[in-house]
Design a protein around this nucleic acid. Structure first.
Length: 100
DNA sequence: AGCCTTTGACCAGCG
DNA sequence: TCGCTGGTCAAAGGC
């Protein structure tokens, strides 16, 4: 089984599903913002047999609160030692749409 | 007692 | 119309 190693980005998320995508031969996890009436969603993709492979985080939707909770401020603009695992692997909005 | 995470089945779109 | 694939909910266990 895979470890629940989800990098923190300053937002709270709750996993609600996990499936293996054949198209990319990777495991895709589904997360939802714990905020109220917030339609923000996050997906994490990682190789099932390749820890070396960089994680892939795909953000969908916008946070209604527009800001992260005080429990984990986003430090405002990179620098934060929170999401420094693979900034080059994060997608916001519709996604990489084309160039990836 | 509540929260969270893990897993199986159902539904929807395309060819 | 059926089958494949991707996306989501629902039931149970530990702290």
């Amino acid at each position: 089984s895979q470890l629940m190693v989800v990098p923190e980005d300053g937002y709270e998320w709750k996993k609600y599903g996990q499936k293996f995508i054949k198209n990319i031969q990777k495991i895709r996890s589904y997360f939802r913002c714990r905020h109220r009436l917030c339609g923000a969603k996050k997906k994490v993709e990682w190789h099932p047999r390749d820890p070396s492979a960089a994680l892939r985080v795909v953000y969908d939707g916008a946070h209604q609160h527009g800001a992260a909770p005080p429990a984990a401020p986003e430090q405002g603009g990179g620098g934060g030692a929170s999401n420094r695992y693979e900034l080059g692997a994060q997608y916001f909005g519709a996604g990489p749409a084309g160039s990836g």
